[in-house]
Design a protein around this nucleic acid. Sequence first.
DNA 1: AGAAGTTACGCAAACGGTTTCGTGTTGATA
DNA 2: TATCAACACGAAACCGTTTGCGTAACTTCT
Lengths: 341, 341
Amino acid sequence: MRQKVTLKSIARELDVSISTVSKALKDSPEIGKETKEKVQAFAKLYNYKPNNMAISLKNKRTKNIGVVIPDIIHHFFTTVIRGIESYANKHGYSVIICISNESYEKEVFNLEMLSNGSVDGFIMSLSAETQEKDDFKHLKEIINQGFPIVLFDRVTDNIECDKVVLNDCEISYDAVSYFIKDGRKNIALVTTESYFNVSEERAKGYKMALAENNIPLDQNLILKLHYKDQDEQEITNFFRSNKIDAVLCVNELFATICMGIVQDHGFKIPDDIAFVGFTDGILSRYSKPRLTTVAQHGDQMGETAARLLIDRVEQEAAVEDASYKTEVIKASILQRGSTTN
Amino acid sequence: MRQKVTLKSIARELDVSISTVSKALKDSPEIGKETKEKVQAFAKLYNYKPNNMAISLKNKRTKNIGVVIPDIIHHFFTTVIRGIESYANKHGYSVIICISNESYEKEVFNLEMLSNGSVDGFIMSLSAETQEKDDFKHLKEIINQGFPIVLFDRVTDNIECDKVVLNDCEISYDAVSYFIKDGRKNIALVTTESYFNVSEERAKGYKMALAENNIPLDQNLILKLHYKDQDEQEITNFFRSNKIDAVLCVNELFATICMGIVQDHGFKIPDDIAFVGFTDGILSRYSKPRLTTVAQHGDQMGETAARLLIDRVEQEAAVEDASYKTEVIKASILQRGSTTN
DNA sequence: AGAAGTTACGCAAACGGTTTCGTGTTGATA
DNA sequence: TATCAACACGAAACCGTTTGCGTAACTTCT
């Protein structure tokens, strides 16, 4: 690493004190016009940039925010990251992204790693394993250490902090109601294990819509797939042994897979079976037919999460205001070819 | 932020000096057994973690590596990130990811932001705009400041540094040769603007295979699409006005779109037209039919890039060894339904 | 018992900044 | 001419760690 230019080196060259240089660069009124110009010109010439670590150390603020997400494969999370980055950068913060890979261990490791002074706070979405184990001591530990946390999407009631969620229940209700208005009666739900809070919310909306329309809930019409390894045979059996004319899927991947399978069995979409998925990702946009899907507005969710976190960080215990907020992002349904419009 | 436990606070509580605490925690032989145990127990009890910023400042090494990539939507980049993260974490490094969003400005901004002492080096893939402008002063600037850089995938000959690339030319040659062996003669190439080095390499392989089999190159069979906004009408016209029985696409998105369009026009895949794409992402895996594609082994590419960078960082100018390496990752073709196997 | 060697620890500088406070120099005011 | 702001700048403490070196107390040897 080449010799970096520091306040000290500038001071030496210009034969002034370090504090003078520091103040001159900040345009402090304490410093005379000539000196200021001299210093600023020199700094510019040699491309001086203050050392972040030194500033962080001094201020006890890193201007970094840590983002820990389960995966980066799902389009939804990538859009959230964009939103976070956008808001954070605009406000002078950098984003450090860590991927828990749906693993509890890795999530703990990531938190440990970042909580040594690398970040001012965290934005997180829980890993599958964490939700399954229902174990949040690592989060509590971090909060205890005084770090603000914002949870988004995959959240839990067991942790008190700011949260950003989708109106999952409501939008599922809307989707299913829409199926019903379209004259469909045998509406299936393809979801994940129930420890995912979002899946549970979506299931709730599904059930509400059925109940409200006096359609009895048929457990046979609910298919639970593993979040990582989907068993195609199981899916095939599901559609073979049930009479189904509409399907709500909790993500676009499940929807895409199911659409492929039912089409292979000669069903027409949306005439025989209609599909609605979640996440407006590339799968939805380029599947055959295009998938009607719930846009989760990840960008907006990310921006909201970043705003909540940065607000929390900046008020720096001004008011140890324990009134945590939960902001709800309103999803919208994008009509495409997999439903009759 | 709650009062953090520091060396100083431990020293105060235990009535020893700061240096004693520091040494005790490092198991230094300078410190007596009892004192060591006392300090270590206390530190453990209060969950002491050394402040990263202070260490970075002291050591002039951050143990962070900066990753600047054009996008996070493309599956390929997400796998590379995984590879980088995996290798880096294993070697005690954290990864800071920034997204240039294919923008030159943002790329410059990201480099600026991270080069203030936040990272020890960079792993990058060039943004589309940067490649289009063919302007690399920001990279040169960073290198001048003494930062090691590793470029991957989207690289340039104008910058001297370590690089990791795919054998794009070769694998394209293989793919096209395969088409030819399969009896196909009218082989199209669907690619991007030519300022993408990877597209150029792939085009080169395409042309080589044709030449070697005495198939005249027909410029009409080469379709250039914009990397962000694809004009479906243009694609439709392309396939309508040319007799085509095989298509090599430089990414999976183009392939998926094209497959959708030709199928809408009644062509059977792979019987009438065969497709090979690049990137083994979800689109390839769940398109109809499944797309035969070039697996770029992003994980491996990421690991390689991380290894090159960390090696470079750790030898810390030991030898100002200017012999930059370019490592080539061998792609492989995954046979799926879009080609006759 | 005095010299020499160990042992166990503390002091202080350094990393690169920020910021408070003190001070020498000016010019204006009484 | 003595007094006093205003101005322009420097000294030094501090953020949390690391580390070379100094040294008091205790052992050991002769």
